[in-house]
Amino acid sequence: MPSTPKPEGQAPEGRFVKVCPLADIPVDGVLGVEVDDTPVALVRSGDEVFAVNDICSHAEVSLSEGEVYDGTIECWLHGSCFDLRTGKPTNPPATQPIATYRVKVQDGDVYVSLDGGDE
Protein backbone atom coordinates (compact mmCIF):
# COMPACT_ATOMS: atom_id res chain seq x y z
CA MET A 1 0.00 0.00 0.00
CA PRO A 2 1.58 3.38 -0.96
CA SER A 3 2.12 5.89 1.80
CA THR A 4 0.60 9.33 1.64
CA PRO A 5 2.70 12.45 2.26
CA LYS A 6 2.60 13.75 5.83
CA PRO A 7 2.61 17.41 6.88
CA GLU A 8 6.06 18.91 7.50
CA GLY A 9 7.23 18.50 11.09
CA GLN A 10 5.26 15.35 11.80
CA ALA A 11 6.41 11.75 12.01
CA PRO A 12 4.54 9.20 9.87
CA GLU A 13 1.92 8.46 12.55
CA GLY A 14 0.84 12.14 12.54
CA ARG A 15 0.56 12.40 16.34
CA PHE A 16 4.23 13.24 16.87
CA VAL A 17 5.69 16.74 16.62
CA LYS A 18 9.24 17.31 15.43
CA VAL A 19 11.05 19.03 18.31
CA CYS A 20 14.79 19.18 17.60
CA PRO A 21 17.78 17.33 16.18
CA LEU A 22 19.01 14.53 18.46
CA ALA A 23 22.41 16.25 18.52
CA ASP A 24 20.85 19.21 20.41
CA ILE A 25 20.27 17.04 23.50
CA PRO A 26 23.48 16.60 25.51
CA VAL A 27 24.56 12.99 26.02
CA ASP A 28 23.39 11.99 29.51
CA GLY A 29 21.86 15.45 29.82
CA VAL A 30 18.66 17.41 29.43
CA LEU A 31 17.23 20.05 27.12
CA GLY A 32 14.17 22.17 27.93
CA VAL A 33 11.81 22.78 24.99
CA GLU A 34 8.17 23.68 24.34
CA VAL A 35 5.81 21.38 22.45
CA ASP A 36 2.46 22.98 21.61
CA ASP A 37 2.92 25.47 24.50
CA THR A 38 3.73 22.64 26.93
CA PRO A 39 7.12 22.79 28.70
CA VAL A 40 8.96 19.53 28.06
CA ALA A 41 12.31 18.25 29.35
CA LEU A 42 14.06 16.01 26.81
CA VAL A 43 16.53 13.67 28.47
CA ARG A 44 19.17 11.67 26.64
CA SER A 45 20.32 8.71 28.69
CA GLY A 46 22.70 6.46 26.78
CA ASP A 47 20.92 5.53 23.55
CA GLU A 48 17.46 6.41 24.87
CA VAL A 49 15.57 9.70 24.79
CA PHE A 50 12.81 10.48 27.29
CA ALA A 51 10.32 13.34 27.43
CA VAL A 52 8.71 14.48 30.67
CA ASN A 53 6.85 17.58 31.75
CA ASP A 54 9.46 20.23 32.54
CA ILE A 55 7.68 21.51 35.67
CA CYS A 56 8.32 19.93 39.07
CA SER A 57 5.07 18.76 40.68
CA HIS A 58 6.29 19.97 44.08
CA ALA A 59 7.84 23.39 43.53
CA GLU A 60 6.75 24.32 39.99
CA VAL A 61 10.29 25.05 38.78
CA SER A 62 11.99 23.87 35.60
CA LEU A 63 13.29 20.30 35.84
CA SER A 64 15.49 20.81 32.78
CA GLU A 65 17.80 22.87 35.02
CA GLY A 66 18.40 19.82 37.23
CA GLU A 67 20.63 16.76 37.02
CA VAL A 68 20.01 13.43 35.30
CA TYR A 69 21.20 10.15 36.82
CA ASP A 70 20.15 6.53 37.32
CA GLY A 71 17.05 6.86 35.14
CA THR A 72 15.77 9.94 36.99
CA ILE A 73 15.71 13.70 36.68
CA GLU A 74 16.33 15.71 39.85
CA CYS A 75 14.70 19.03 40.68
CA TRP A 76 17.43 21.56 41.40
CA LEU A 77 15.43 23.38 44.09
CA HIS A 78 14.50 20.73 46.68
CA GLY A 79 16.06 17.55 45.30
CA SER A 80 12.96 15.59 44.32
CA CYS A 81 13.73 12.97 41.67
CA PHE A 82 11.31 11.66 39.06
CA ASP A 83 11.52 8.36 37.19
CA LEU A 84 12.02 9.10 33.48
CA ARG A 85 9.84 6.15 32.38
CA THR A 86 6.87 6.62 34.72
CA GLY A 87 7.11 10.21 35.97
CA LYS A 88 6.64 8.99 39.55
CA PRO A 89 8.63 10.71 42.28
CA THR A 90 11.36 8.49 43.72
CA ASN A 91 11.97 10.58 46.84
CA PRO A 92 10.40 13.47 48.77
CA PRO A 93 9.43 16.20 48.99
CA ALA A 94 7.47 15.58 45.74
CA THR A 95 4.52 13.21 46.11
CA GLN A 96 2.77 13.75 42.76
CA PRO A 97 4.06 12.36 39.44
CA ILE A 98 4.92 14.42 36.38
CA ALA A 99 3.59 13.65 32.91
CA THR A 100 5.67 11.51 30.58
CA TYR A 101 5.41 11.66 26.79
CA ARG A 102 6.18 9.29 23.95
CA VAL A 103 9.35 9.93 21.95
CA LYS A 104 10.58 8.77 18.57
CA VAL A 105 13.96 9.40 17.00
CA GLN A 106 13.76 9.34 13.23
CA ASP A 107 16.40 10.37 10.70
CA GLY A 108 18.39 12.15 13.43
CA ASP A 109 15.42 14.20 14.68
CA VAL A 110 13.44 13.89 17.91
CA TYR A 111 9.63 13.74 17.80
CA VAL A 112 7.36 14.00 20.85
CA SER A 113 3.72 13.03 21.25
CA LEU A 114 1.76 14.77 24.01
CA ASP A 115 -1.35 12.62 23.49
CA GLY A 116 -0.05 9.78 25.70
CA GLY A 117 -1.81 7.12 23.60
CA ASP A 118 -0.34 3.79 22.66
CA GLU A 119 1.63 3.31 19.45
Rank of each mutant, 00 (worst) to 15 (best):
E8H: 08
A11R: 05
V27K: 15
G29M: 00
F16N: 00
E34S: 13
V19D: 02
A41V: 00
K6C: 01
P5N: 09
P26F: 13
E34P: 09
D37L: 11
P26C: 06
A23S: 11
G14Q: 11
Q10G: 04
T38E: 06
I25W: 04
A41K: 02
S3A: 15
V40R: 02
P21Q: 09
L31C: 00
P12D: 08
Q10K: 06
P5I: 02
M1Y: 14
P7C: 10
A41Q: 00
K18H: 13
P12K: 07
P39L: 01
P5M: 10
D36E: 12
E34Y: 10
V30S: 02
G9N: 07
L31P: 01
V30W: 03
E8R: 13
P26V: 00
V30L: 02
F16A: 05
V19F: 10
A11Q: 03
T4W: 13
V30Q: 08
K6P: 08
V27I: 06
A41I: 00
A41M: 08
V19S: 02
A23W: 13
P12A: 08
P26I: 00
G9H: 02
T38G: 05
P5D: 06
G9F: 02
R15L: 14
D28A: 03
G14T: 00
T38C: 10
I25P: 00
D24A: 13
G9E: 04
A23E: 13
C20Y: 03
E8W: 10
I25F: 04
A41P: 09
V40H: 12
K18V: 00
G9R: 04
D36R: 13
P12L: 10
K18I: 04
P21C: 06
V33A: 02
V17H: 05
P39W: 01
P2G: 03
G9S: 07
G9Y: 10
A23H: 08
Q10I: 06
E8G: 05
L31Y: 06
V27S: 12
D28M: 03
D28Q: 12
P7S: 03
A41D: 07
V19M: 02
P7V: 11
D36S: 14
R15D: 05
T38S: 11
P21N: 04
K6G: 10
V35F: 05
E13Y: 11
E8V: 12
K18A: 04
